[in-house]
Design a binder for these strands. Structure first.
Lengths: 340, 340
DNA sequence: TTGTAAGCGTTATCAA
DNA sequence: TTGATAACGCTTACAA
């Protein structure tokens, strides 16, 4: 059976399309009886207004998009993402938005941006290429960048990554460690840290500062940087890699808790005691970091709040109140049981 | 500046709207030079085809919706959801779909369904009211129901909940426990288990069968059923509640791992040793269940696979290959360290 | 109070 | 090869 449209209802109820539209959107404008009749006709025929047609006319989709640099099934493997989404979700609930997760489409971020039916975007950890930025601009929907190097004239939400990096490395150094492995999430730069952008760049800068105070540096032979996927699996692989390398680090600085958790898992499997044989510090402070044992020492960032703040900012933009501010949320060191 | 449309490009490039459309969608139909000219004009003016207009015409949104019964910020608190999404995400990646999370809109599932711009829905743990089912039917988009009582004529994916319930309860009973608290996720039925639907109903049925073999039943005074949110917090509250009740259970059967984890957390805070002072079995087998210590004994279900299977089924429907099958995925008991 | 008609920005059919 | 033009289904001035 063909789709039931407003026209069918109009015919059936013996009124114009306008009246039908009113019956749904401004019932107060119509006599009670007419509204009844229309609604009944609609019910009988099984009519549901086509959301797309409505959007084309009104220009409001009622959904906000989260632009992510990786395939969905990959990004969801990090509880960080759930936490972030939770914060965004609070705002969605509040303001009646749905949420769309927008990964690259056939490998192209541009295409994904061009095709998403949203009122605005949150970009998460995206290093937007010029071309993507152009598409984003041309789409003419507002966007807020989270965990990226801020661009002029666009709203941004970040945490104090540099301080976070410093805090983590300094803590390890203060504990007396000299052979240190740094595990970063995959960047596409294969560990060439000097090319790092955004979050990674800032954290590494923090590491540097801390290292220099101990006469060390990122280039020192006892300091090793490797990358892995920011997942449990990724952490496990990372552990295997560092553990069989020539440098047997006494401490690991992980760029995310989920990586750290993966490392703990792998270490346990190989009977490497943490923190006795290996110290470990994470980054994020996801809920499970404190649940595991030993509980994970980490840098805490307000993930949920970050999502919430960013979403609030975006919703303001959608409502037409441009606020190009650049917010920076604090981080702090949480001492628990994985560093000796 | 006003939005740049296909018309502007046509004028600028001195061609018709049709040609512009072709230049983007079927460039092979146009002479190379014309395509170039059009693309340049588009680039210069910053043109991006309007996805909504495209969808209105083509009828394809390129996104699949996940209908969830709770606000986003609540549902994301259960790692079960991330796992599920991960499975769905695999299919999205494969077939180039985005994913939209669709919670009730202003309290109304009907409204949410009516407004979502998707090619199809996955419903997760939804007990769809008649009215919502009607809207879903009328929307005329395919849908697949996951974790619900299957309806005639609609595709469904479930796990063997009844067996899962049986396995869990039987294991606890075999271990010699007689005073047992069952913790269910909030159902809106406030523990009146006889009114349960879907997943909950089936699991309770499994409990019953196991209990009866030990001359017990859901109504026995030593068997207690309470509900809580399926979150870490929820589990913590649940522990507090059962621990200060007159019945001091020696074992807890939790309906989700995240609840179980919350219970473990609360128990630890109050120095209640698991499994020595209290045995505990979960349900789901989320990744963290095996990471925690003691590792959580639980009923394992293939969450990610469930998402994947459901999404595959949905995509088939979207492509026009109706397959109204009802799949049931297996569960199994995973003995770890929380039952004595 | 109700109806007419003009868009919204595409795609796609059909002529030229 | 290219260009009018008619949908797509709705909202909303404006007219009656």
């Amino acid at each position: 059976m063909a789709k039931v449209t407003i026209k069918d209802i109009a015919k059936k109820a013996g009124v114009s399309k306008t009246s039908v539209s009113f019956a749904f959107n401004e019932p107060s404008q119509l006599p009670e009886a007419t509204v009844q009749r229309i609604l009944e006709a609609a019910e009988e025929l099984g009519y549901v207004p086509d959301p797309i047609a409505r959007i084309l006319k009104t220009g409001k989709t009622g959904t906000i998009g989260i632009l992510v640099p990786q395939p969905i099934h990959e990004i969801t493997r990090n509880p960080f993402f759930s936490e972030f989404i939770e914060g965004v979700g609070e705002v969605c609930t509040m303001d009646g938005f749905s949420m769309m997760i927008v990964p690259p489409l056939k490998g192209s971020m541009e295409r994904a941006i061009a095709n998403a039916t949203v009122d605005g975007f949150l970009t998460l950890g995206l290093e937007l290429k010029k071309s993507a930025m152009v598409v984003l601009d041309n789409r003419d929907v507002p966007f807020v960048m989270v965990d990226s190097d801020p661009e002029d004239g666009v709203a941004a939400v970040n945490i104090d990554d540099e301080k976070g990096g410093f805090l983590a490395m300094d803590y390890i150094l203060q504990a007396g460690h000299k052979k240190i492995a740094i595990i970063a999430m995959r960047s596409g730069k294969e560990g060439k840290y000097k090319d790092y952008l955004g979050t990674l760049r800032k954290r590494v800068k923090g590491y540097q500062t801390a290292l220099e105070a101990f006469d060390l540096s990122m280039d020192h032979e006892k300091i090793r940087l490797i990358e892995c996927a920011s997942t449990l699996q990724g952490g496990r692989h990372a552990f295997d890699e560092i553990w069989k390398s020539d440098l047997r680090p006494t401490a690991v600085v992980a760029m995310s808790d989920i990586i750290a958790l993966g490392i703990m898992r792998a270490a346990r499997d190989q009977a490497v005691k943490i923190p006795d044989a290996l110290s470990l510090i994470g980054f994020d402070d996801i809920p499970f970091a404190s649940l595991i044992s030993p509980p994970l020492t980490t840098i805490s960032q307000p993930i949920r709040k970050k999502g919430k703040v960013a979403a609030e900012l975006l919703v303001e933009h959608i409502k037409g109140n441009a606020d190009i501010s650049h917010k920076i949320l604090p981080v702090k060191l949480v001492e628990r049981g994985t560093v000796r």
